[in-house]
Design a protein around this nucleic acid. Structure first.
Lengths: 244, 244
DNA sequence: CTAATAGTGTCTGTAAGACATTATAGC
DNA sequence: GCTATAATGTCTTACAGACACTATTAG
């Protein structure tokens, strides 16, 4: 306790060892009409079907990471090849028994991104990465550590935020139509939505910028839009489907 | 990397040192018609007015804490004398420079509690603790480390959640009246609220249990209520004051 | 009775839900 | 013309906001 400017600690003696500290990503995208999450696995060397998939994770690199977001961005860059414009803290999970190596705490970020299908999105460096569809009843996949629980929380948060924010739009490409956007919401929320109410909701406020160009299609062309900003999400005045 | 069941790490070599890891509390109460936050300071020995106040904080005690919530409960017990029924993860702050001792990450919990005024709530063990009123423009107090920023985020979250949840009720005693509750919301949100709409909102749903007893007062007595559960908050169907 | 606080009733505004209708493309 | 999809219009419902009104206590 003779260290410089140590903040007051409430109770107990100074601890001896420190927890393993990491940042995990719950990165979501939409491909082939499915909500998908990015999972990784060690390199093919010795990787068998028994090896569990895991959320992308990096231990904090003290010499390299300026802060938690920086670590999250580094992790995303390594595996996605780009830094996502919108990252949101989901929460943190820490306990004595969630990692067999010892007391471990992880800071989890929710990352909605646009990504093409690309069944198994190549291996980036040392790991194999793939977009796994989110199936019913918490994926069913057996993931490493407590990642199944974290993923369940991430899916719940994503769906909940879809009820009152523009978060789903961040999983679409730069230019999209309102029917595209509605379809994306329907995929995430797993229920059909009313066209008229949906359009009013999305077009009110400062969310979208119309491009005054049209997507040529099989039938009547649809107006193209772009997000005014990809850096943040917009909150709508009311939540959808206010349950009785 | 030859450790048992190590999860795949996305990039970079295994780190050498681990961050200092702690749990901080942003505990709020209502006393004397003011929103207050619990702050601590090292024991009076050598404590001067120059010593900054800080949020209650505990480093993770690997041998003692089962998980992050456990650490938060231990911290709350040490300083409040009781374990609060409702704790909510606010977020985590971690960076190379927020603590002069080195890379430090803290997991912050938002804790609304009922607490009497008690100007300086005695010293519990090694620290001095007091409920400080939340003043305009982020308190104005100079706090230890980056606690001023964390506190600002906590106040923002508390006020935001007051707009669409029952969180404010957790800062009232076990039994209270609807006028009590409305006054509490008005203190937190710093604006007057409509009586009729407020009552409808609070009485719909499963939030309150009427006790069929009355608070005797100066004028007409008011019905007493109790929270159906103190362990969780209730979400209302709409946010208040849907801004244009 | 009056004063003060507790509690209710009525009307309006906003935005979502349901669903019908019109518009514009290819064929 | 027909079909499919894009976009709009109309009506209903739920609930917050404003505010008037009634109810119950002390004195």
């Amino acid at each position: 306790m003779a260290k410089p400017s140590a903040p007051p600690t409430v109770a107990g003696p100074p601890p001896s060892a420190r927890p393993i500290t990491s940042v995990d990503l719950a990165a979501f995208s939409l491909a082939d009409d499915q909500l998908r999450v990015l999972l990784v696995r060690p390199t093919p060397f010795g990787a068998s079907a028994a090896d569990p998939w895991a959320l992308p994770s990096s231990e904090i690199a003290i010499a390299q990471d300026a802060d938690l977001q920086g670590c999250a961005r580094r992790t995303a860059l390594a595996i996605l090849g780009k830094i996502p414009p919108y990252l949101e803290q989901l929460g943190s999970w820490g306990s004595a028994d969630r990692d067999p190596r010892g007391w471990a705490a992880t800071h989890v970020y929710l990352v909605p991104v646009f990504a093409e299908a690309a069944g198994s999105s190549g291996r980036e460096g040392m790991v194999q990465a793939a977009w796994h569809p989110i199936r019913e009843s918490t994926t069913g996949l057996r993931l490493a550590l407590d990642h199944a629980r974290i993923l369940a929380a991430a899916v719940a948060r994503l769906r909940n935020k879809a009820e009152y924010t523009s978060v789903v739009a961040h999983m679409l490409p730069d230019e999209f139509t309102l029917p595209d956007l509605q379809h994306a919401y329907e995929v995430v929320l797993e229920r059909p939505m009313d066209k008229s109410a949906f359009r009013t909701r999305m077009l009110s406020g400062t969310l979208l910028q119309p491009l005054n160009r049209y997507r040529e299609g099989l039938r009547r062309p649809a107006m193209l839009y772009r997000l005014k900003t990809r850096r943040s999400i917009v909150h709508f005045p009311r939540s959808l489907q206010a349950k009785a």
